[in-house]
Amino acid sequence: MDYKEIYTFLNGDLKKIEDELERALQAETPVLKEASLHYLRAGGKRIRPIFVLLAAKFGDYDFEKVKPVAVSLELIHMASLIHDDVIDNADLRRGRPTIKAKWGNRIAMYTGDFILARSLELITEIEDAEFHRILADTLVDLSIGEIEQIRDKYNFDQNLRTYLRRIKRKTALLIAVSCLLGAKVARADEYCQRKLYRYGYFSGMAFQITDDILDFTSTKEKLGKPAGEDLIQGNITLPVLFALRDQSLNREIRKVNGKADPEAFQEIVERIKAAGAVEEAQKVAELYVRKALQALDDLPDNETKPLLREMVLFIGNRKF
Results as ranks from 00 to 15, higher is better:
Asp211Leu: 04
Leu160Ser: 07
Gln149Cys: 00
Ala206Pro: 02
Ile268Phe: 01
Ala90Ser: 15
Ala274Ser: 12
Gly258Asn: 11
Phe216Leu: 12
Ala70Lys: 02
Ile147Ala: 00
Leu40Ser: 04
Ala264Met: 14
Asp212Thr: 04
Arg151Cys: 00
Pro49Asn: 09
Asp141Pro: 01
Thr111Asp: 09
Thr8Arg: 13
Glu267Gly: 10
Lys57Pro: 02
Pro30Asp: 13
Phe314Trp: 04
Glu20Leu: 10
Val312Ala: 09
Ala55Trp: 09
Lys15Asn: 14
Lys153Cys: 03
Glu303Phe: 02
Glu74Asp: 14
Leu92Val: 14
Tyr154Lys: 13
Phe114Tyr: 15
Leu53Gly: 07
Phe51Glu: 02
Leu293His: 08
Ala285Cys: 11
Leu21Met: 14
Gln266Asn: 15
Val284Ile: 15
Lys65Asn: 14
Arg94Lys: 08
Val185Lys: 06
Met109Lys: 08
Leu296Ser: 06
Asn89Trp: 12
Leu120Gly: 11
Ala206Gly: 07
Leu139Val: 03
Lys319Pro: 01
Lys16Pro: 01
Asp298Tyr: 09
Tyr61Trp: 03
Ala260Gly: 08
Lys319Tyr: 02
Phe156Leu: 13
Ala90Tyr: 09
Leu10Ala: 13
Ala35Gly: 07
Leu231Ala: 03
Gly204Leu: 09
Glu267Thr: 08
Leu75Glu: 11
Ile6His: 03
Ser143Cys: 02
Pro262Arg: 12
Arg290Tyr: 10
Gly228Thr: 06
Glu229Thr: 11
Leu299Pro: 03
Tyr110Leu: 15
Ala117Ser: 15
Val69Ile: 08
Asn89Ser: 15
Gly59Asn: 03
Lys15Cys: 03
Gly182Ser: 05
Arg198Tyr: 12
His83Arg: 06
Asp152Asn: 00
Gly204Cys: 11
Ile123Leu: 13
Glu286Leu: 15
Leu75Asn: 09
Asn11Ile: 08
Gln233Leu: 08
Val69Asn: 01
Gly276Ser: 07
Leu181Pro: 01
Lys220Cys: 15
Lys184Ala: 08
Lys4Gly: 11
Phe207Thr: 05
Asn257Met: 12
Leu135Gln: 10
Glu270Tyr: 05
Trp103Ile: 10
Asp246Val: 07
Glu127Pro: 01
Ser218Tyr: 10
Ala42Val: 06
Gly59Thr: 06
Ala42Lys: 06
Gly43Met: 13
Arg133Val: 11
Ser178Lys: 03
Asp62Cys: 05
Glu280Ser: 11
Leu223Trp: 04
Asp85Gly: 10
Phe131Met: 15
Ser203Leu: 15
Asn105His: 05
Gly112Pro: 14
Phe207Tyr: 14
Pro306Tyr: 01
Ala183Thr: 05
Glu310Ser: 12
Phe114Gln: 14
Ala55Arg: 06
Ala176Val: 05
Leu238Arg: 02
Glu121His: 10
Tyr288Val: 07
Gln266Ala: 08
Asp62His: 12
Asp212His: 05
Tyr201Glu: 09
Phe131Lys: 08
Glu263Val: 14
Thr162Cys: 00
Ala79Val: 09
Gly234His: 00
Asn317Val: 05
Ile253Leu: 06
Tyr39Arg: 05
Leu164Met: 12
Lys57Trp: 06
Gly43Asn: 07
Thr304Arg: 01
Gln266Ile: 04
Thr98Asn: 10
Asn159His: 05
Glu74Cys: 12
Lys319Asn: 04
Val284Glu: 14
Gly145Lys: 00
Ile76Phe: 12
Asp297Asn: 07
Glu125Pro: 06
Pro68Leu: 06
Glu221Asn: 12
Glu263Lys: 14
His38Arg: 04
Ile272Trp: 01
Ile144Tyr: 00
Lys222Glu: 15
